[in-house]
Design a protein around this nucleic acid. Structure first.
Length: 280
DNA sequence: CGCCAGGACATTT
DNA sequence: AAATGTCATGGC
């Protein structure tokens, strides 16, 4: 019995049937996702154009043989080209708390402000909720929004403001998506929004803008930089200046143009193999 | 009970 | 520029 995963992609319900470790069959009732054919969309969404062999610099496997053995189990892991607004709001929910609470917040946001959709699977209907539209969050009542953000009023206010900035064009993904925009500049543009610091800005760039050079440094990344790459900087507490130093350091270890994509493999390898965490 | 979770921000030294 | 407090809550 193969594994099935159901999900909403750009508000379109799809079903993924796992064939092998890294191959899926996509099942959907609709012909297109967001105006594009399913296969074309999925290829882009799952970044199948990205060659995994290009992620790590030549000589990396010889330099870190024991790490390479652990890491080889993660070569089928993909970064997704996710929707900008969804990524923006989701990562604004991810400050200083565990994965469990982050997922709870996003789920509650979808249930409260998203639209109900369903997909037929094995004869029974599965109900899913889309991610809230920018308008629905821009108009959301702060108290109701707070109930979705772990009762954190400041976070709810920041999300509300970001949604309004998106609506009025101050936060324009088409502008931010410019591939010639240097990473530091992109980061500072995102950081103008209250509630977004260096780390969240880099996450939005990496997952929501397809900037695979963006390298978010969080508590786990800090830990593996110290443990696997013997970074003395990573042992000290994280400050804004040290964030930029670690970002710079990572680019000497990994390919600068793919540092974030490679870092994501290292991130999950660290969490599962060393920390023994089971949550994705 | 204490500490850590995919941090940001204001305030104090 | 480094340290501390605050926001919040669930899991271990």
């Amino acid at each position: 019995m193969p594994d099935y995963f159901y999900s909403l992609v750009d508000s379109t319900p799809i079903l993924l049937k796992q064939l092998t470790v890294c191959s899926f069959e996509v099942i959907s009732e609709s012909e297109k996702i967001n105006g594009r054919s399913i296969s074309e969309y999925i290829r882009d969404y799952l970044t199948l154009d990205i060659d995994i062999n290009r992620l790590f610099p030549s000589g990396f496997s010889e330099h870190y043989p024991e790490l390479w053995k652990l890491l080889s189990g993660y070569f089928s892991l993909r970064i997704l080209r996710q929707d900008f607004f969804e990524t923006l709001i989701t990562f604004m929910c991810a400050q200083g708390i565990g994965m469990h609470l982050i997922r709870k917040q996003v789920t509650m946001l979808c249930h409260t402000f998203g639209e109900k959709r369903s997909i037929l699977f094995n004869g029974k209907s599965i109900t899913l909720y889309s991610f809230p539209t920018p308008l629905s969050l821009a108009e959301a009542d702060i108290v109701m929004l707070s109930r979705c953000t772990n009762n954190n009023r400041i976070r709810a206010t920041n999300i509300s403001r970001a949604a309004r900035s998106f609506m009025d064009g101050a936060l324009d993904p088409e502008l931010l998506r410019n591939p010639h925009l240097p990473l530091p500049e992109l980061r500072s543009m995102l950081c103008r929004n209250p509630g977004i610091g260096y780390k969240i800005a880099d996450c939005i760039a990496l997952f929501g803008l397809g900037r695979f050079d963006a390298f978010p440094v969080d508590t786990h990344v800090k830990q593996y930089l110290a443990y696997w790459f013997h970074s003395s900087n990573a042992l000290k507490p994280l400050s804004p200046v040290r964030y930029l130093e670690l970002d710079c350091e990572a680019r000497t270890i990994l390919n600068p143009d793919m540092a974030g994509y490679a870092g994501h493999l290292l991130f999950h390898c660290w969490r599962r193999e060393i920390k023994k965490l089971r949550t994705f």
